[in-house]
Design a binder for these strands. Sequence first.
RNA 1: GGGCCUGUAGCUCAGUUGGUUAGAGCAGAGCGCUCAUAACGCUUUGGUCGCAGGUUCGAGUCCUGCCGGGCCUACCA
Length: 570
Amino acid sequence: MNRTLITSALPYINGVKHLGNLIGSQLPSDVYARFCRAKGHEVMFICATDEHGTPAELAAAKAGKNVADYCMEMHDVQFELARGFRLSFDHFGRSSSEQNHLLTQYFAGKLAENGLIEEISEKQVYSNTDKRYLPDRYIEGECPNCGSPDARGDQCENCTKQLEPTDLINPRSAISGSTDLEVRETKHLYLKQSKMREKLDNWIKQKSDWPILTTSIAKKWLHDGDGLQDRGITRDLDWGVPVKKGAVDWGGMEGKVFYVWFDAPIEYIAATAEWAAKNNKPKEEWERWWRTDKGAENVNYVQFMGKDNVPFHTLSFPATIMGADDNWKLVDFIKSFNYLNYDGGQFSTSKGRGVFMNQALDILPSDYWRWWLLSNVPESSDSEFTWDSFQQGVNKDLADVLGNFVSRITKFCRSKFGEIIPEGNEYGPREFTVINQLEERIASYENNMAKMEVRKSAADLRAIWSIGNEYLQDAAPWTLFKEDPQSSATIVRFALNLIPLYAALSEPFIPDATDTMVTAMNVDKLWPENISNSLTLLKAGHKFSVPEVMFAKITDEAREEMNEKFSGKK
RNA sequence: GGGCCUGUAGCUCAGUUGGUUAGAGCAGAGCGCUCAUAACGCUUUGGUCGCAGGUUCGAGUCCUGCCGGGCCUACCA
């Protein structure tokens, strides 16, 4: 049996994510996971909240909560939203879990053992008022280059010059505005990625089938300037995984934690361990996904992420895995995405611009969002959400093409034959032609799905739905009924049989609609392995019911209202 | 500044290793149908493929330059 391990980039903990975050990894990974399951793969689909780092601490402080409580609450919020969007994770973990603490410390220990960790003493800015070290971008001041008063410690946004925090004139804390800052000497661990450069380079070179977006970013980091740089993997923070060498304390590293980007990818593994613990499964059950010496050698591991995550998944995390040199599973394929913009600009949490996951579900059910987002996923370049496009895509594809097909044939049958599959004759040439068309399109659909070509898959699916309307129009059972009800019944039986087929094929994109169709037709969901056979599943005499309108249309008034509401006036 | 991606019909996008009349969906126009969520089907109008050179028997596809859009540039994650 095919075994597929799928991970989605971890959403950060500091708030509800917007639609751009959703379509950037979670949603496409869910489509792929559902497809693999439907094709009979054994699937492990993992996601988690990424809970460490300065922004989490600040968000908690702002909410007036201690960071552990805050993260627990936000994890629950994100978990519920994931359910709301029907994301079918086998486990949605937390990077703050005990499992991740242990594994992160284990990996650090292994890397140290293998000579890949270096202790470096460096100077960091400390804020006495905030009682914390400040990351470069949390220090603001006047730009020495252009004089902008709001330059950040890593870069001036006004003149784009790269800066060091000590370059700033009159530096202040971005958190409190305090100028009571001092430079302190502090020791940190660095992952010697530079030593792994050749190995990583050779590995990336083999991946000619990966998206260009993925490999070009990796190559840039490998070859730019002096090549791949070592990376600090510890921070002076309270909240995080305490720095340890495996199970033992790390001298000189007291009070420090691992950098969020070191522990976050390890959470993919740890979350699988969380899954095992939660389901009372032994250690072997998660190790067979992650240890090539314990069953993972035949696992196909696919990662999904936005382009901002690519360097960490193509270089840092593989450096950790390779560097540990202990039979851990490396990723086989990285599917990366561009950004979704909102109506001519970026989504913005601070400006209240764009649609966030909770708001989206308040407006319309998840299928609407899933369909539009997936059929417009930023695959080859950045793409853009507009209410106009959303209304048009949803109304046309879901309401008119699919929803109306289901509606017209079930209602026609009910009025002429009742809510029961009529018998009629054997299928004839017209039906065989349609079967051929379906076979062709479904083959294309499956091929594109297997390649994770999401947009093309959506286009195929839509074309498959459309075949039903073309058939009905051509066969016109309503005309035939007047003189030859028997032949009309054949057409109705065939058309009704399309509904379970559509239900199964549509499930990766619009799972709720699949449930509606399956329930209405009173059948089990079954991925078609043989199209001809699958269109004879509903036999004469089988009872069904006419479903409620599957997709109500978005009105012009509603569109205008939403457009106004989310434009981010303030 | 450097690097990467991108520019194909009004809009959103496909265009395989360069090969005959450049495709799809939406929008527009016309016709048809009346089972259906004023839905559906058929036909059809739109493109000197950003611009200028070059390579080639042949370029949307390769090369060079220019113009426009986007992203990344390592302490946000």
